[in-house]
């Protein structure tokens, strides 16, 4: 047979999983802001569980990118799944790093917040706090993810710039220690 055989000699692609916990998806959007560099990236990586794919549970991965802090029980469950499956876990954005703006709810008692939103807020009639077991229970406070699992790297920003995300991913793919200099590191 002369037909060219497709050898599996191509370098194994890195598996990358991403998720948004108590996030706004802004960090994912900033990730997509790497624009055409996505094509280059897809030459090196393959997405596992991610809002970009239809995979429901993370398999074994090289890199996990986490956006958002922890605000409910399901967030904690997903975060632990990612930590189990990912060799390198990266906190992306202010929320994953310090709770972010959602953590501004921390000084307010949770029952007061739920009552305001579902019971007593203007325009509500016969409101009730959702109590279906299908719904994950909110946590008392919003937490950064490093309070629950070990985090290997942090990319600050709200959101981090595409260049910052690209820099960290490029460094990780090349086996370098990620580093952001002046201009790429910001918290706002």
């Amino acid at each position: 047979m002369d037909a060219p055989v497709k050898h599996k000699t191509a370098k194994k692609k890195l598996k990358v999983a991403t998720t948004s916990l108590a996030g706004c998806f802004g960090c994912h959007m900033s990730f997509l802001d790497i624009d055409e560099r996505l094509f280059e990236l897809l030459g090196h990586i393959e997405f596992d569980r991610s809002p970009f794919t239809d995979i429901k549970e993370a398999g074994e991965c090289d890199i996990g990118l986490i956006e958002g802090g922890l605000c409910n029980a399901e967030n904690v469950h997903v975060l632990r799944e990612f930590r189990r499956q990912c060799k390198i876990l990266v906190a992306v954005g202010a929320c994953a790093i310090n709770g972010g703006l959602p953590a501004l709810r921390n000084p307010i008692p949770l029952p007061a917040i739920l009552a305001e939103v579902y019971h007593t807020g203007i325009g509500l009639s016969d409101g009730m706090i959702p109590n279906d077991p299908e719904l994950p229970l909110p946590l008392n406070k919003v937490h950064p993810i490093h309070e629950v699992v070990k985090v290997d790297y942090f990319i600050p920003g709200c959101p981090p710039s595409a260049d910052a995300i690209w820099q960290v991913l490029s460094d990780l793919m090349a086996g370098r220690e990620p580093a952001l200099g002046h201009g790429l590191i910001h918290y706002d």
Binding site: A94, I97, H146, D188
Partner: peptide
Amino acid sequence: FCPSCEKSGDCQLQATAYDLGMMT
């Protein structure tokens, strides 16, 4: 929470943290 602080970009604490390479 720098993302909602009016002093962001003009804040010495934040700028010092940048300068020291504080990622978290």
